[in-house]
Amino acid sequence: MHYFKIVLIALIVSSCGKPPIFNKAEKAAIHLYAENFQVEKIGFTLKWIVSPSLDELSSFEITLERELKPGQTISSYIWMPDMGHGSSPIMVQQISATTIQFTELAFIMPGLWTLHLEINENNKVIDQWQRPFTL
């Protein structure tokens, strides 16, 4: 039965690589500073009110350099590019002419996420911004 032992040893050896239990990812701090919508040329700053977390709903707000043009709105969503799915809709609240708050971000599992912001006009996306991070 030596060939079975050879096959089993080959299987064990080919599992080279750190086992997950000893190979935990370092979760990088999420730093987001001054950002830009490239097409509409609007700069903005993004501030996390509740940082992205697996334990509670997150929220953030952006402050635009100038007001959006009439008829334009901003929306946001989060997405897992490796998993092919996102999460529940994000609530948007206009705090002032240039400050918008986004709440109820539900990061439902660990992994790579991207945060998306979109400027919409006439039901079309005319500009967008995104940043990846890992939870």
Partner: peptide, 17 residues
């Protein structure tokens, strides 16, 4: 308990989840 990412690193879920 969590997910492994594309680099093979383990992302374990929070203890309360």
């Amino acid at each position: 308990l969590g997910q492994s990412n594309n680099e093979g690193e383990a992302l374990f879920d929070g203890d309360n989840n």
